[in-house]
Simulated scan of single mutants.
Amino acid sequence: MIDINKDRLITLETTPPKLPTIEPMIEKIKKSEAYKYIDGFSTTDCPLSKLKYNSIIAAYKLQKNFKKPVIATITMRDRNKIALQSDLLGANDLDVTNILAITGDPASMSDQPNTKAVVEGNSTLLLDIIRAFNNGMDYSGKEFKIKPKPITPFAVSNSFAKNFSSIEKKMYKKVKHYAKGIITQPVFDEDIANKLISIRDKIRFEFKDTREFDLIFGFFPITKLKTAQFLKSHVPGIYVPDEWIEKLIKAHKISEDEEYKVGLDLSKTLFEKLQKIHPKIHIMTANRFEIVKELF
């Protein structure tokens, strides 16, 4: 189980492949030595509604291979209450007890023809189901003959908004539903990181001793101009500083190697600053695991 109360927590996101095995991904992690620098992993659940290997089984295999805890993502998009609880029971038996609850990307984005979403609620419903499991019963209130192992629930948050009160309201709601870890979208600015910490502190004060939760900064190392421009223009809830764009434009005009060098330098500097502000960080690399080693 991931201990959200640790002074330092570094996790690494993995996206299982569209294959009947995750062995190639495991070998890639081993070759990169990324596992040596982190405290745990996460597995995504068919991001962008694209078909991928199962997130829970992937989490089990990563835990077995690397002896580190894994947060398995479960989306609301693909499951009703029966399927959600069935998956939680199976995950529990496999010792996959860190669960990231998300609503999920729209089914309309899927690579599978005529895909329809199966949505009975947003991520707070799954948080409520996890709460019931942690009390030894299913969502209908019926007690299990064997109580499930404790589940640590995680949720997500945007890292930027024109009005940060909207982030506060959504984060408050998820903590109210007993999320213990809130993983943000990637943070690219120190001031934004400090604003998010202020929101965390305010919510903690409002709940006083009735909730146990902490924030985990999302971190995405940028090494290409097109990635920075895409995140800035097309991904809601993320802020990429103009300074980053300008420096990457200049580097891009020189060479691909210079572009990578400048991007990595910006990312590494930010990573060091974020660790000083709050050393609980979730690294997202789009499975470019080799870059983890370069950050430390």
Rank of each mutant, 00 (worst) to 15 (best):
I29E: 11
R79Q: 06
K68Y: 00
K30I: 15
N54G: 12
N65D: 10
K18L: 09
K67I: 03
I38F: 07
Y60W: 08
T75W: 03
L62F: 02
S55Q: 04
K64W: 08
D78R: 03
I26E: 14
V70H: 05
I71L: 04
K28Q: 15
F41G: 12
R77A: 03
L62W: 00
E23S: 11
N54E: 11
V70Y: 12
I74H: 02
E33H: 02
L51H: 11
K36Q: 13
K36P: 03
A34Y: 10
K52D: 08
Y53R: 04
P20R: 10
K67N: 14
K30H: 07
M25P: 02
P20T: 12
I74R: 02
K36T: 12
K36G: 07
S32K: 13
P24H: 10
K68W: 00
L19K: 09
I71C: 02
F41N: 07
C46G: 10
I74G: 02
L51C: 04
T73F: 06
K68T: 01
I71K: 02
Y35G: 07
F66P: 01
M25G: 08
F66K: 01
D45M: 12
E23P: 08
A34R: 08
K18I: 03
A58D: 06
T75E: 02
R79L: 04
G40N: 02
L19A: 13
L62M: 04
G40K: 04
R79G: 09
N65M: 14
Y60V: 00
N65I: 12
K30N: 12
G40A: 05
N65T: 14
I26C: 12
F66V: 01
K28E: 15
D78M: 01
P47W: 12
K30Y: 15
T75H: 07
K52Y: 03
K36D: 15
T73K: 08
V70T: 15
